[in-house]
């Protein structure tokens, strides 16, 4: 059992979960993930490690409430325990001095991009961070990201910030302005990663994405997280989660992510019906 140190709703739908896990905190590296189970009857899901404190022995993740398991996680409080918190899993991100790197993140990816941006900065890169939010009130970790970025940009649909363009449009406009980008790292929903890759394909900028297929065990045994990269089957849990976005078969990934949509909806409806209290 692992103890929850903090569970906090950062912005609507996005929650921070800080868990006491000294062994994971001691070893984890940017780009890696943990597997978590909210309770003993729940499912295992992967969460990207967003931060850690090696001294305190804690690991932080940020997740979006988008299914039964994350709804359950969102109801945990400090002091509660989760039966499974396994990691660090997956290959760490390839951190080197590339020159200028654009780190694009949206949704839970705003947090997931943070340790990568920090490491890239420490490796001597010029880090441009591009955060995508639907509206200004959905922005979080701005201060943390600003500290590890040479340039910090926010794109929101509601005119709160300098641009309302979606990530790919912003990447294109940066390139049009003459910005030099040696590498792009994009993390967020599948659509954000896919569309970022489409924007960088023509100019030929290497784009790394952290894939988020359905995953069960996270250690290469079950094969649920298989995805096609460069025409070869890869397991996101052990071969990734980072992959060259231009080599990913996105249509297959989109389709596989929807495999259990009906079941997921039924499960959530059932959970809400049977587990959320109704007042008499």
């Amino acid at each position: 059992m692992s103890k929850i140190i903090r569970r906090e709703r950062l912005v609507p739908n996005l929650h921070l979960l800080e868990v006491s896990a000294p062994e994971i905190a001691r070893k984890c590296l940017p780009g890696q993930f943990v597997m978590i189970m909210p309770d003993e009857r729940g499912e295992r899901i992967p969460l990207t490690i967003a931060d850690w404190d090696r001294d305190k022995g804690s690991v932080t993740t940020v997740f979006m409430t988008v299914g039964t398991t994350t709804h359950k996680l969102a109801r945990l409080s400090a002091g509660d325990e989760v039966p499974v918190f396994v990691g660090p899993l997956g290959k760490p991100s390839d951190i080197r001095n590339y020159g200028a790197v654009l780190c694009a993140g949206g949704c839970f990816g705003i947090a997931a991009i943070y340790p990568i941006a920090r490491a890239l900065k420490e490796a001597g890169n010029k880090v441009i961070t591009l955060v995508d939010v639907k509206a200004g009130y959905l922005l979080y970790w701005e201060d943390k990201l600003r500290k590890v970025s040479d340039r910090f940009l926010v794109s929101a649909r509601d005119h709160k910030f300098e641009t309302k363009d979606y990530v790919p449009a912003k990447i294109k406009s940066l390139l049009a302005e003459g910005a030099k980008l040696d590498r792009v790292v994009a993390i967020g929903c599948t659509y954000l990663m896919y569309s970022s890759c489409e924007a960088t394909r023509a100019p030929g900028i290497k784009t790394v994405v952290s894939l988020n297929p359905i995953m069960v065990d996270g250690t290469g045994m079950c094969g649920a997280c298989r995805c096609a990269v460069d025409g070869k089957t890869k397991f996101a849990c052990v071969d990734g989660p980072d992959f060259d976005g231009h080599a990913v078969d996105w249509n297959e990934l989109f389709a596989r992510r929807k495999s259990y949509l009906d079941h997921e909806m039924k499960s959530l409806c059932y959970w809400e019906r049977t587990r959320l209290p109704v007042c008499a």
Partner: peptide, 29 residues
């Protein structure tokens, strides 16, 4: 009113790809 999706340039494509987030806890789009 959470309006981002109403005016988003990507809304046509996004509808096809983001079916799963209908299951979210709070509505932000």
């Amino acid at each position: 009113h959470p309006n981002a999706c109403l005016i988003c340039s990507e809304k046509a494509d996004c509808e096809d790809h983001k079916a799963s987030i209908r299951k979210s806890a709070e509505v932000t789009g």
